[in-house]
Design a protein around this nucleic acid. Structure first.
Length: 503
RNA sequence: GAGCGCGUAGCUCAGUUGGCAGAGCAUGUGACUUUUAAUCACAGGGUCCUGGGUUCGAGUCCCAGCGCGCUCACCA
């Protein structure tokens, strides 16, 4: 494809050549002493007057340009914010004035000069020096409408990030959330560990894996679907509190709530239980809300700015048995028997458009009805407990009724955000569970003999939990799509995009 | 994987009954030393997603494909 086929790039390339003819490198040099624009803006005090502030050096992308003959105002943007720069022929050196004539929206520049203000009171750098940092050869999006095509925004996040300040804000918020989670876990004595993402046997969840291949060993490897079995090996090894925050990969459909690679926190605590982990996650999410979002009421706004949804994180969070919740919402009293035809017909009539599949066991029916009909309606946090144990081969059974597992499934914002378990540590029961799993062949966990071997050396009873970081961020920020909280969500390549290389 | 919707200038979008391809921003030229989406004048800019078909004539109608979004399915 001819990259210079459009006139916008041709014009910019002409300016590039003119810069070079004038002895100016359009792609700049390092500039010691550049400070964030928002920091510079905050330096200004009224007593500095028109141009009496300190001489400062700032750098950024030209977002707006207002030329008036011998005076130009630029709006410069970096990842801290925007700041106005004035290019005044009387103040700028000759080299700078040459550059001024060849500037385009989107260029990256460095300016140095006294901080001051304008007649209209806008804090401004009165540039005495102007340098090119990088010439933009492609034009930026429209200054007012910005980049709004979602496909372009995801494909060209490098433009989206500076064209739409909210995208940068959200990206940084994600970083702070994960940072705060690490601090919270660390404060509680958890150690962050790293376990294999390329695994010989994919385990720890029921999901289809991605397959890759190691050439030298001539063997297939799986991208992990969960770190669970390795974290438990660390419990066997003697670690008492461990966690990992990193990517899992699941070869499944893509939706506003699913990206093939997603970030998960998993944590294990020796001698803990599902209740230990419920307390842990409850405390964690509340701390995030209080430190980063100003309180326990999370409001999601729609496009007009009206409050579309309020999530109340006030403690204690509800804890309810799955069967009780199903009965409360549907009237079906679960007694380990299949749902009656009448009740099923009533449910289907009340929920048109949902495919309620009940060909499985009563336990699977209960889970199906919970996941299809109830989970999407759980906005405030709710720990759903007493999940049928046949569904959960890695969890310990409930002592009073071994039909159920000692687990929670935490739903917030209509999504499952975190499961937590009292982990199974009996190697023989674990081996039997691996053998009797539900799910199709691809989803089934192969028996990980080495994991069973680890259990035979003795794993302490433990609480374990997983937390979907992307969904948590969606809940906290009100993002409607998981792609809005992931910088580079998976996209199919555009036609020809893959054929360009190595021709 | 299925259904529905979308794809037009660099960006954001109009495009009527099938009859010369449009606007705003951006770009070029000119004017302008206090602008804030600066303003004013003039000009240039198109693979209408791709490929077929119907038609004297297709951005528009039909078929197939590609990409994106939403819903459903998949997803302990």
């Amino acid at each position: 494809m001819d990259q210079t086929s459009n006139i916008y790039e041709q014009e910019r390339r002409q300016k590039l050549n003119k810069l070079r003819e004038a002895g100016i490198d359009p792609f700049g040099q390092s500039e010691p002493g550049v400070r964030p624009l928002s920091e510079l803006k905050a330096l200004y005090q009224p007593e500095m007057g028109h141009d009496g502030g300190p001489t400062v050096k700032g750098a950024g992308r030209i977002i707006l340009k207002r030329d008036m003959g011998k005076l130009s105002f630029l709006t410069l943007r970096d990842d801290s914010g925007d700041l106005q720069v004035a290019l005044d022929k009387k103040r700028l050196d000759e080299r700078g004035w040459t550059i001024r004539g060849l500037l385009d929206l989107g260029d990256l520049i460095v300016v140095e000069g006294p901080l001051g203000t304008t007649n209209k009171g806008e804090t401004t750098i009165w540039a005495g020096r102007l340098e090119m940092a990088s010439k933009a050869l492609l034009p930026p999006p429209a200054k007012w409408e910005g980049l709004s095509d979602v496909e372009l925004r995801y494909r060209q996040r490098y433009v989206d990030l500076w064209a739409n300040p909210d995208v940068m804000r959200l990206a940084k918020l994600r970083i702070r959330i994960i940072d705060e989670i690490r601090r919270y876990m660390s404060d509680r004595g958890y150690l962050e560990v790293e376990t294999p993402m390329m695994q010989i046997i994919h385990g720890g969840a029921a999901a289809r894996p991605f397959v890759t291949h190691h050439n030298a060993l001539d063997m297939n490897l799986y991208l992990r679907i969960a770190p669970e079995l390795f974290l438990k090996r660390l419990l066997v090894g003697g670690f008492s509190k461990v966690f990992e925050i990193n990517r899992n990969f699941r070869n499944e459909g893509i939706s506003p709530r699913h990206n093939p690679e997603f970030t998960m926190l998993e944590a294990y605590e020796a001698f803990g239980s599902w209740e230990t982990m419920a307390d842990l996650v409850e405390g964690m999410v509340c701390r995030l809300a209080e430190t980063l979002f100003g309180g326990l009421k999370i409001e999601h706004k729609n496009a007009d700015g009206a409050v579309a949804r309020t999530i109340n994180l006030q403690r204690p969070w509800r804890r309810v048995r799955m069967m009780d919740l199903v009965e409360e919402r549907t009237g079906w009293k679960f007694n380990k028997e299949p749902i009656s035809a009448d009740q099923l017909a009533a449910l289907r009539q009340a929920n048109p458009g949902k495919e309620i599949k009940v060909h499985g066991s009563p336990a699977e029916q209960l889970v199906e009805i919970y996941e299809k009909l109830i989970e999407p309606t759980l906005i405030d946090p709710c720990f759903v407990t007493h999940v049928p144990s046949v569904i959960i081969p890695l969890a310990r059974k409930n002592r009073e009724d071994d039909y159920f597992a000692d687990v929670y499934e935490l739903a917030i914002n209509g999504q499952e955000i975190s499961p937590g378990y009292s982990e199974l540590n009996d190697p023989d029961v674990q081996a039997a569970n691996f053998a009797h799993q539900v799910g199709d062949k691809e989803e089934q966990q192969k028996t990980d003999e080495d994991f069973l071997n680890a259990l035979r050396h003795g794993m302490p009873p433990a609480g374990g939990m997983g937390l979907g970081i992307d969904r948590l961020i969606m809940m906290l920020t009100g993002a409607e799509s998981i792609r809005d909280v992931i910088l580079f969500p998976l996209m199919r390549p555009e036609r020809d995009a893959l054929c360009v290389k190595h021709k």
